[in-house]
Amino acid sequence: MAERVFDRETLLDLTVNFIPLGMLLFFILLFAGTTVGGPAPVARLVSQALLVVPFVALVGITYITGRIIAESERTGHSETARAITALVTGEESDEDEG
């Protein structure tokens, strides 16, 4: 049987992001079905982009955060968090030196 990526406790930790994701998804679908800004296609594109971009970013951040939480609960540390920190600070990781 395949191991689940996120256990019940990790999903509980991530529920704070599910409500904003649901709200963004609701407005994406609402504005996709209605005419926003009249017939101007640029206004429609901008209004959708202002919803879709944060939605995609929040999905990515939620997944990465869940992965870090799950790794930390299993092993006591997170390789994902270490790799992100090295990327942000510009430090070379141990893997790059060898």
Rank of each mutant, 00 (worst) to 15 (best):
S47E: 04
Q48K: 10
E91K: 14
P20N: 09
V56H: 03
V88W: 09
D94P: 14
V53K: 02
L50A: 12
E3T: 10
G98W: 14
I19D: 03
F6Q: 02
T80C: 05
Q48F: 09
H77L: 10
G33K: 05
M23D: 07
E73C: 00
V5G: 05
H77F: 14
A57G: 09
F55R: 02
L25T: 15
V56G: 04
T15N: 09
E73Q: 14
A81F: 13
R74D: 08
I69Q: 01
S78Y: 04
L12S: 12
T35N: 12
T15C: 08
T65N: 12
F18Q: 03
V52P: 01
I68A: 05
L14K: 06
L14I: 10
G76F: 03
F55H: 11
L45C: 01
L45G: 06
F6D: 05
T75F: 13
L11K: 10
V36E: 01
A40Y: 09
F31W: 12
F6N: 05
V42D: 03
G33M: 08
F27D: 06
P54I: 04
Y63G: 03
R67H: 08
V5P: 00
L29F: 15
L21C: 06
A83G: 04
A2G: 04
I19V: 15
D96F: 11
L14N: 06
I84W: 06
L30N: 12
P41Q: 10
R44N: 13
E79V: 13
I64R: 12
R8L: 13
T89C: 10
M23F: 15
Q48M: 15
E97Y: 11
L87N: 06
F18K: 04
E92L: 15
A40V: 11
D94N: 11
L25E: 08
L24T: 03
L25V: 11
L24P: 04
G98R: 15
M23Q: 08
T80F: 04
I28R: 04
G22V: 07
A83K: 11
